[in-house]
């Protein structure tokens, strides 16, 4: 019944959009449907599983990536929008298997419990520290307001960001955003 109804529906030829962008420093070419969302495109077509989709409604921030250096919620961005941009996911912030200073600080401070929200928190923290290398606690709270941790481990996350910021982190964040590989 349902399938016969489906057949009767107007045939719509699905538009394909050619994409060229840079993912974690590597050029990518692909084609996508207009309605394809960046989070699902990266996860399902490019296998970038560090993007987590928590709420799928622009609340939780687990899908946060950097697009041209700015944090965005990739579940609410059309994949087509990535065309011509540089996209950085959590996979792109460590180098040769070595965790970044920010990731180390998250580990040291027990800033994760189940870990589902962690990639999003890392990307938002990276964006925050790139913009403001030495944020106050209030600035950290405001900067991370778009990320939810359902284990409610917020205090340790704030501690981790604070600690990372006091260890000369700002210059490193800037370097990573500019894709310079010098120093680690």
């Amino acid at each position: 019944m349902i399938s016969s109804q489906r057949k009767k529906r107007k045939e719509v030829s699905v538009q394909k959009i050619d994409l060229e962008f840079e993912l974690n420093g590597v050029p990518v070419e692909a084609d996508v449907e207009p309605r394809s969302l960046l989070a699902f495109f990266l996860r399902d077509h490019l296998g970038v599983k560090g993007i987590h989709v928590g709420c799928d409604t622009t609340n939780c921030g687990a899908c946060t990536v950097l697009m041209d250096g700015k944090s965005v919620k990739s579940c609410t961005v059309l994949a087509a929008r990535a065309n011509g941009t540089k996209v950085t996911t959590v996979e792109g912030i460590s180098s040769n298997g070595n965790l970044s200073a920010l990731q180390e600080s998250f580990a040291r401070n027990h800033a994760l419990q189940c870990g589902y929200c962690t990639p999003g928190f890392l990307m938002s923290s990276l964006y925050l520290l790139g913009k403001n290398p030495h944020p106050s606690e209030e600035e950290i709270r405001k900067g991370l307001a778009g990320n939810l941790c359902m284990c409610t481990g917020y205090l340790n996350i704030i501690k981790a960001v604070k600690e990372a910021s006091s260890s000369n982190f700002g210059s490193e964040a800037g370097n990573r955003n500019n894709k310079n590989s010098g120093g680690s």
């Binding site: 622009t58 921030g61 946060t64 700015k70 944090s71 965005v72 919620k73 609410t76 961005v77 938002s124 964006y127 925050l128 405001k142 900067g143 991370l144 307001a145 778009g146 990320n147």
Partner: peptide, 9 residues
Amino acid sequence: IGDEQVRNM
């Protein structure tokens, strides 16, 4: 308005 990520888009 919204949060940091929303304000960026």
